[in-house]
Structures are given as structure tokens and as C-alpha cells.
């Protein structure tokens, strides 16, 4: 039964995520972390990290990871198939329409409305990431002074590195090593 729920939840996510990999994250977070607690926020951020370093789109990676957590390999397959099911059905419909009419006019308007929406949702996910990284908290912390200084240092350096076009893999590897060094110094 849990596999049916996984399939259904990820099918909804697949249907509503418009605008590439990052757009799927707020949806996955809302369902997998906030509603069903299949993953903690920390595990969710780890999947995001892992996805940046391994082949495959983040949405499929997150579906597989969450599915495995909930029900092993069956869960992984159910979640992943669910996630791509809307692509499969809509893709075939759109391909047929496109070959028939050569235009997908009204869809443009919908997309123009969705693009800024996705921007807003990604900003929201970004703030959840910051709260977890610096305050180890999933909600707005009551005490802002409890900030993790080594986390803030790594975050600041990483932002600078990315703005200077250093590759994602190098930034993540570097921040991992820095995390280990600072952790050892602290402990």
C-alpha cells in the first residue's frame, strides 16, 4: 500500500513541477519532508548535495532515495515510475498535438505565469536550506544568536566560489573537506 502512496505522491510532484530540476525541490520538500516525514530536512539537503555530484536529474534522484528509505527497492521503483508517469502521458499528448498543429500557443501564457512562481518557491526552499545549515532548524529559530559560525564561514566561502564560476563539484568537495577540518578543530 505504501508503494501506491509513493507512486501517487511522486506522480503529483511530477505533474506540478515546471521549470527544471530546481523547481521540483520545493514540491518534494513539501510532500516528502513536511507532510509525510519520509525524510528529515537534513536528509533532504543531503540528497540535493548527492544529486549535484552524481549523474541523473535531482527529481529522479530524490524519488529513488525517498522510495528506498520508505520501502527498499520496491519503493524506489514505485516513486520513480510515479515521478515520470506524467511526463510519459503528457509528452505523448503534446508530441501528437505538436505534429498536428505545430504550435502550443496557450501553454506559453501558463508558463509565463509559472516562471515567477517557481522563482518564489525556490527562494522559499533556499531559506529552509539556510535555516538548516546555520541554525540546524526547520522553522524560523526563536533564538537567532545560536548561529553555527563554522557553517556560516563555509557558506560564505562557497557563495564567493560559485559566483567566481568555480565548478559545483569542486565547491561541494571543498565544503565537505572544510566541514571535516572545522568539525575536528571544534570537537
Amino acid at each position: 500500500m505504501i508503494d501506491v502512496l509513493l507512486f501517487w505522491e511522486f506522480a503529483k510532484i511530477g505533474l506540478f513541477c515546471v521549470g527544471g530540476g530546481y523547481a521540483s525541490m520545493p514540491l518534494i520538500q513539501a510532500s516528502v519532508v513536511d507532510t509525510y516525514h519520509w525524510l528529515s530536512m537534513s536528509e533532504f539537503v543531503d540528497i540535493f548535495t548527492i544529486s549535484q555530484m552524481t549523474p541523473g536529474p535531482i527529481g529522479i534522484n530524490a524519488a529513488t532515495f525517498a522510495g528506498t528509505k520508505v520501502d527498499g527497492i520496491c519503493g524506489a521503483v514505485a516513486a520513480t515510475i510515479g515521478f515520470v508517469a506524467p511526463s510519459f502521458i503528457l509528452g505523448i499528448i503534446l508530441a501528437r498535438l505538436f505534429f498536428k498543429y505545430g504550435d502550443i500557443g496557450p501553454i506559453r501564457g501558463i508558463l509565463n505565469g509559472l516562471r515567477p512562481a517557481v522563482v518564489a518557491l525556490i527562494c522559499g526552499a533556499g531559506i529552509s536550506f539556510i535555516l538548516l545549515a546555520l541554525w540546524n532548524s526547520e522553522t524560523l529559530p526563536s533564538d537567532w544568536s545560536g548561529i553555527d559560525l563554522s557553517g556560516a564561514l563555509i557558506l560564505g566561502l562557497s557563495v564567493i566560489a560559485i559566483r567566481r564560476k568555480i565548478s559545483v563539484i569542486s565547491v561541494l568537495t571543498g565544503s565537505g573537506i572544510l566541514g571535516l577540518i572545522l568539525g575536528l578543530l571544534h570537537g
Binding site: Y22, I154, L180
Partner: peptide, 24 residues
């Protein structure tokens, strides 16, 4: 030790998403 590495990488991943959000 893995937790320390993952914690550091979480900060790196946060930087990535901040960067994407700023650009968007």
C-alpha cells in the same frame, strides 16, 4: 566524521541554491 563532511557539504549546497535564487 561522515556527518562533519555532510554538514560542510550542506553549507556548500545551500550556497548553490542561494546562487540559483539570486540569478532567477
Amino acid at each position: 566524521y561522515i556527518q562533519m563532511i555532510l554538514k560542510g557539504m550542506q553549507c556548500g549546497a545551500t550556497a548553490l541554491i542561494i546562487n540559483v535564487a539570486i540569478d532567477l
